[in-house]
Amino acid sequence: MQTPTSANSVPWLTKHEDAAWRSFLALSRGMERAIDRQLQRDSELSSSEYHVLVPLSESQDGSLPSRELLRHLDWERSRLSHMLSRMEKRGMVCRKPSPQDARGLIVEITEHGRQVINGAAPSHLTMVREAFMDNLSTDEMQALVNMADKVIPRLENMNLI
């Protein structure tokens, strides 16, 4: 059984580490809010709906097993189920029984869903480029990729994601 770390033994962040951590959080949260607002304003999509449509639209036949979609999104099953119900009501996706897995479902993008994602993507990517990518040098972009390549496996090994 793990015992709580005492306040005296906590490896507190240095001033430099704290600034980096807080900057990362502000950047991450700011980009998430900006993406949510831009998608809602320009396409009446939530960022969650957009995130569901992207892997479906990029798949070879416009469909994915729900388990694979869960892996793409890293969501809980109940969250995906609720989102797919909402999106089905809006005519963007449909669910069908899986021919390979009696308990599984195939999620398929509809023609309306394709129109929605095709309409949303240009302004979304323009915002991402203007707000984020255009402000970074090639070296800074690579540094970001390098950081993610180090941190994400660590989170996975710690069973945190």
Rank of each mutant, 00 (worst) to 15 (best):
S137N: 01
S98E: 07
P153L: 12
V107E: 01
I35F: 07
R77Y: 10
P65E: 15
V54Q: 13
S66H: 06
E68G: 02
L125Y: 11
N118P: 02
L45C: 06
H51D: 11
E17W: 02
V151H: 05
G119E: 03
D101T: 07
V54Y: 11
L84I: 08
H72Y: 15
L160M: 15
P55D: 05
S57I: 06
V52S: 02
L125I: 02
D139A: 12
A121C: 04
M87L: 01
S66R: 13
Q142H: 09
R67V: 10
I117E: 06
H16K: 11
S98F: 06
S59G: 06
H72G: 01
R114A: 09
E44H: 09
S9C: 10
R79M: 05
W21P: 00
A7L: 11
N135F: 07
A7F: 10
E58F: 00
T110I: 07
P65Y: 12
E68Q: 14
S66V: 08
S46Q: 08
E58V: 02
L27A: 15
R129E: 03
S9F: 09
W75T: 02
D61L: 14
V151R: 05
V10T: 06
R95T: 10
Q2E: 10
E17F: 08
S28H: 13
S81W: 10
T138V: 13
H51Y: 06
D139Y: 05
G91F: 07
N8G: 11
S23P: 00
S47L: 10
V116W: 12
V151M: 07
E58S: 09
E108F: 01
P97T: 05
D61K: 11
F132C: 12
E68A: 10
